[in-house]
Design a protein around this nucleic acid. Structure first.
Length: 993
DNA sequence: CCCCAACCGTA
DNA sequence: GTACGGTTGGGGG
């Protein structure tokens, strides 16, 4: 080895642990062998061997080795028998991968180095110093802090998962000390994962500070008596020996006897067939293809290698070894003769009634095997036209799009898939066929530059013109999973889908509360089939590609399968909807909301970035100033945002009385606890509360929102989830516009940044007390009904009933308590919760509840009846018949049971209110267009709708919106309580609200 | 890279 | 005490 050479040393043992946790589970298709870490390892090696210059390492290796730990017992155990004693056994799925990774290393033609009695880190240290002495530079592929002591101007580390080089400045940035002081720092802080003791109470911050002051550990120990803080001084003096022992443990040995001399680490050329054989055995198709291409190997003629699998001490049996050696299954999708897959026959009778036919078809569609090899890619117009004609004949087609993004406003259409059922003479003759229409797939893989347009794809415009005819024909039922996404995407291409069903929403109506409603979950639940994973097509994380870079055969298997699964799910779910009497809920509260929400998302809302940027600056200044004061009060710097560190300061160092504990046993530092401490006159907690508010507003809102401004529309487009909650509420994300601050004056400033475009106003219309009104209706409480009919202050009325105080001149504290009780009722009240909310004794809260039930016995009846209903049926219902399931309501664990009881008391109230605003939303667009008004609905925040309205239309819009909302329950239901809506117009959301 | 815990914003 | 989603810190070993 000579000057200018570059040695790469991979910390194989470190990598495998980190990769195992960092990379999602990946199992070999043919036998389920876990291979996620092996996959990450192979991809990393390949990248370094071919592409190192393009990573942040920036150089090409001349020498290369992978280093492993030999076993857990090393010379360090002789120094300290507890070294690494608290390591638990590795996860079961990791065990076979240890051996596989060594096989992988050899398949890559790289030295695989380990030595009994030494850790990988010692071998790395020894090679590193030898290479350095020879004039070479070294890159250690690891992010382990234990190796940072090796960093010098010639030696750096590389975190391959973050593509981050770790040199001297990075070490200083992270630890506050240069690499040569890392040993002393680690000796002081210790390491709980390796069971290195260190000095108790000294963390990295303190250690760095002490090293800064005293230079090194020995000096510090010698002069420990000078330390001002009494506790710290005693600690260090008492534990000096532990620190010295720890230093021995963390010091890496640079004199490890080497079996493989440095010279033999010289990088040799790849053995293409050998590596391909290994990768084929692992069934890493993408990497196999890449390696085959780069090494000029014909992958088709290479047999998969026979790789033995070691399951460790408690092996799962030899059959896995056999399976491991078996050849990989052939890949799907090449020139299939026909796109048909036979639906399995269950021998069910074919009764003539529609219900019976549907039931027997449901069983058939649920029980077939899915065969990817039968899918076709449609790559010419005549074929597409034929499929569309067949879809029109059938009157039913499953439809799915493939795109470049989860964000429908930014996504580019890459292709689409269709699935059709030909029912045949009787159900057992039914066949499903599915096809994918690739539109803009590229050749080559995404991470190589360029990649041209793949051949034989129908031009997008032609395909869309044919698709438009199908999608806009209301007589053909389009079935999709999460149609809102595809609807919005198609709308952006000038296509308005008409005549559709959505399997996600069907599932949601049937099963809210019973698991999620994504396609993979539904497929497993109803079809017993696990569809191909999107991640397996595109990869994930930094190395992922967009779907247009997935090769067309694989894309066809994936996309056509999605359409087929959707079609099958529809056949299973539709009869269930009928059988449970939920068709009306689906058709009136779910399906019609798809276009309504898609339109709202497409419109978006304007935000004023200047306002946010100014607020951001103010918050940054405020937070920085508070930080200074916080450090001063704490007597040291620390990460204010870390509840753990904060807890140590407040309740350890400063000795303040701790309030509650979190479920992990940490002292809670919640706002409630800090407020209590502040009330006792402590300065620091108040500052923390203020700091938290400022940083919260900054990070969650003022900093984040501008990032959501769409590059073309210049507006913010949230995404509403229709099937995410158990109760029937919507949720909003990316960004969440349902949690924009309003309670504090500081927070409300953020709302001023939500503005109407010029010539327009924002109109906000919100239901007043809708949940209490629903409660008054469902529980039929005379006093509540009367109060709402009379329009009196409901909380004051409650207080008056309970405490005998007249409404006029009601003290605010009494009203506050009544208000908390009213909310508590809606939440399925408990004495514990009410006591917490009001900061009173539980016994006092109990008395309140008792009193409340005496005055409003109908509410106790409602709560008891609801619990009994939930226990009997496993679900509860809203006033419109929507169901929310609570499968754990019969749990034998009292706390779980109580939780489910409270939730099932809340669900009919929250859910009925959600149903009401859903009905309003469905009715509002037709009402506005009937009145020829320009108002456009933009946002929903559970009990509030926000519109953007031309100035001239504002006055006429408000009464229409109010009327639609107040009458939204009708005619389905005549409520015993009036609904009340307040509406206002202004330039921004803060003033309109 | 991903997940959890803690915290906090909304109705 | 209900229902959500987002951010940060910290762990994994």
């Amino acid at each position: 080895m000579k000057n200018g050479d570059h040695l790469f040393l991979v910390d194989g043992s470190g990598f495998i642990f980190r990769a195992f946790h960092a990379i999602p589970p990946l199992n070999r298709k043919s036998d389920g062998l876990p291979v996620n870490a092996v996959s990450g390892f192979c991809n990393m090696l390949w990248k370094l061997l071919t592409d190192a210059r393009d990573t942040s390492v920036g150089v090409t290796p001349t020498h290369f080795a992978v280093i492993f730990d030999y076993s857990s017992k090393t010379f360090r155990n002789e120094l300290y028998d507890l070294y690494k004693a608290n390591r638990s056994a590795p996860p079961e799925d990791l065990i076979p991968q240890f051996g596989l990774i060594r096989h992988a290393t050899r398949a890559f033609n790289l030295p695989c180095i380990e030595k009994e009695g030494f850790e990988a880190d010692d071998l790395i240290a020894t090679y590193t110093r030898l290479a350095e002495k020879a004039g070479a530079s070294v890159t250690i592929i690891s992010s382990d802090k234990d190796l940072m002591q090796l960093v010098t101007p010639n030696v750096s580390m590389y975190d391959s998962m973050k593509d981050k080089q770790i040199s001297i400045p990075e070490v200083i940035e992270k630890w506050g000390v240069p690499p040569e002081k890392m040993i002393d720092l680690q000796a002081m802080t210790g390491d709980s994962t390796d069971n290195v003791p260190g000095i108790p109470g000294i963390g990295p911050k303190t250690a760095a500070q002490l090293l800064e002051e005293y230079g090194d550990l020995d000096t510090l120990l010698a002069r420990a008596g000078e330390i001002k803080q009494a506790k710290r001084r005693e600690n260090i003096i008492a534990n000096a020996d532990l620190a010295r022992l720890s230093r021995q443990l963390v010091t890496l040995r640079t004199d490890t006897p080497l079996d493989v001399p440095l010279e033999e680490l010289h990088l040799e050329p790849q053995d293409g067939p050998r590596l391909v054989a290994f990768l084929k055995a692992m069934e890493f198709t993408t990497l196999t293809r890449r390696v085959a291409a780069a090494t000029d190997t014909d992958a088709d003629v290479v047999e998969p290698a026979a790789v033995p699998v070691e399951w460790g001490a408690d092996a799962r049996g030899p059959d896995l070894d056999k399976a491991a050696a078996a050849p990989a299954s052939s890949s799907a999708g090449e020139a299939a003769p026909a796109a048909v897959s036979q639906v399995a026959s269950t021998g069910e009778a074919t009764d003539a009634t529609p219900e019976a036919l549907a039931q027997s078809r449901a069983a058939l569609f649920a029980s077939a095997t899915i065969d990817h090899s039968r899918y076709v890619a449609i790559r010419d117009l005549p074929t597409l036209d034929a499929w569309i004609a067949d879809a029109k004949d059938a009157g039913l087609v499953a439809f799915d799009t493939e795109t470049t993004s989860l964000d429908a406003m930014q996504a580019e259409l890459v292709g689409f898939s269709l699935a059709l059922a030909d029912y045949g003479k009787d159900p057992s003759g039914t066949v499903i066929r599915a096809a994918y229409v690739p539109l803009i797939h590229k050749t080559g893989v995404g991470d190589l530059l360029g990649g041209g347009h793949a051949e034989n794809q129908i031009p997008v415009r032609e395909a869309l013109s044919r698709l438009k005819v199908l999608l806009e024909d209301p007589s053909v039922l389009k079935v999709a999973q999460n149609l809102k996404y595809d609807y919005l995407l198609m709308k952006r291409h000038g296509i308005t889908v008409q005549g559709f069903d959505d399997t996600m929403l069907m599932s949601y109506v049937v099963d809210a509360g019973n698991g999620t409603h994504g396609m993979d979950a539904l497929s497993e639940r109803w079809l017993g089939h696990k569809p191909l994973a999107y991640k397996d097509m595109t990869g994930s994380g930094k190395s992922s590609v967009t779907f247009d870079y997935v090769d067309i055969d694989r894309a066809t298997a994936y996309a056509a399968e999605d359409a087929e699964v959707t079609l099958r799910l529809w056949h299973v779910l539709k009869p269930r909807l009928v059988a449970k009497g939920l068709v009306r809920v689906y058709e009136r509260l779910e399906r019609p909301l798809v276009p309504v929400l898609a339109h709202m998302e497409e419109r978006g809302i304007t935000i004023d970035r200047q306002i946010l940027s100014r607020l951001s600056g103010e918050l940054a200044q405020g937070a920085a100033a508070l930080e200074d004061e916080i450090y001063k009060l704490a007597g040291e710097t620390f990460t204010v945002g870390s509840p753990k560190q904060l807890g140590d300061i407040l309740f350890g160092k400063m000795g303040l009385p701790g309030g509650s504990k979190t479920k992990t046993g940490q002292w809670s530092t919640s706002a409630q606890v800090l407020e209590d401490l502040a009330a006792e006159g402590h300065e620091l907690p108040r500052k923390i509360v203020d700091w938290r508010q400022m940083t919260k507003l900054k990070s969650t809102y003022t900093d984040a929102l501008p990032g959501f401004v769409h590059p073309e529309t210049k507006r913010v487009h949230t995404s509403y989830a229709l099937a995410a909650t158990t109760t029937g509420r919507l949720s909003s994300s990316d960004p969440n516009l349902q949690n924009i601050p309003v309670r504090t004056a500081e927070g409300r400033k953020i709302r001023t940044a939500f503005i109407a475009t010029s010539g327009h106003k924002l109109v906000s219309a919100d239901y007043s007390q809708i949940e209490l009104r629903v409660l008054a209706h469902v529980a039929d409480i005379p006093q509540l009904r009367q109060a709402f009919a009379d329009g009196v202050d409901i909380h004051a009325m409650t207080a008056s009933e309970m405490f005998g105080v007249p409404v006029a001149g009601m003290p605010s504290e009494i009203r506050r308590r009544a208000k908390a009780i009213n909310f508590g009722i809606i939440y399925g009240i408990s004495a514990f919760g009410l006591a917490n909310q009001l900061s009173i004794e539980r016994s006092e809260a109990s008395d309140y509840i008792k009193k409340y039930f005496e005055r409003f016995p109908g509410i106790r009846d409602y709560m008891e009846n609801t619990k009994a209903f939930a226990r009997e049926h496993g679900y509860v219902e809203t006033i419109f018949g929507r169901r929310a399931h609570y499968p754990d309501i019969r749990s034998s664990i009292p706390s779980h049971r109580a939780f489910n009881e409270r939730a099932s008391i809340n669900a009919p109230i929250q859910g009925s209110a959600a149903d009401i605003i859903r009905r309003a939303m469905v009715k509002i667009e037709p009402a506005l267009s009937e009145a020829k008004l320009s108002a456009r609905m933009l946002l929903q925040v559970h009990d509030e709708l926000i519109f953007e309205v031309e100035d001239a239309d504002v006055e006429r819009t408000i009464p229409i919106v109010v009327s639609v909302m107040e009458n939204a329950a009708m005619p389905a239901l005549d409520m015993r309580v009036p609904l009340k809506v307040d509406a206002r117009a202004a330039m921004n959301w803060d003033e309109a609200h």
